[in-house]
Amino acid sequence: MKNFKVFNTENKISWCPGCGDYSILQALKEALFELDLQPNNTMIVSGIGQAAKTPQYVNANSFNSLHGRALPPALGIHMANPDLNIFVTSGDGDTYGEGGNHFIHNIRRNPNIVHLVYNNRIYGLTKGQSSPTTDLGMITSSQLDGHKTPPINPLTLALTLGAGFVARGYAHHRDHLKALIKAAYHYKGYAIIDIMQPCPSFNKKNTPEWYESNTYYLENHDEKDFNLAYNLATHVNEHIPLGILYRVEKNTFLERLDHIHTPLLKRQVQQKDLELLLDEFL
């Protein structure tokens, strides 16, 4: 099979009709194929949520972790075997809510991982409660007279924490998204793509029409300009830029561990070294 279908599985997809997840899944599979990756050298890691079901729909290695816990096992897998190409696929609740602490600290670590956040600004799986990115005032199943707490802005947060690859995609613009995923893959380090995504079942505000009239493609953009990137990232409700907001080189997690020369998976323990360890106790 010489197309993305090598990444298909036979598992029945359980997303709602019209969900943005379909489009993201398709963009991901096409990107994997065009990047010439194989099911056995690709690793999809997720937490729990609708978005986090993605691994079941991609024929590749996968680790489906607990709610909020996609990044830590992804890091562990990366430590053990950096030859695996790791893609984390999780929702806004999974990443910015339950997994918020891991999100913060993984940016500091900068492991070579691609992170796709399916940001529908709502909790899909649990039926429509507000998420960390739900807009102030939006009525949700858990905030009956409107959400009272302002949202976090994941991309300004990522930028201030020192993320080196920060991008924004839109689920239904699949080719554009695919190009972002490929660029994220080629980036050496932690690459986050916050993917804006309609949720036809529970988010009646941020609809496809709403996104069409409030987004635009970044063009002739200086990807190294931090202040500009920060400014662009603040736009989440109108004039929302789609594309790579920021891309600069940074030392990665494993580059900083200068004593690790071969993947841990291939490491051999020397008997002599073990015996030397006993000296200090004699």
Partner: peptide, 10 residues
């Protein structure tokens, strides 16, 4: 979870 990930990868 980091330890678990590493272990799952061998």
């Amino acid at each position: 979870h980091i330890a678990l990930g590493a272990s799952s990868a061998g």
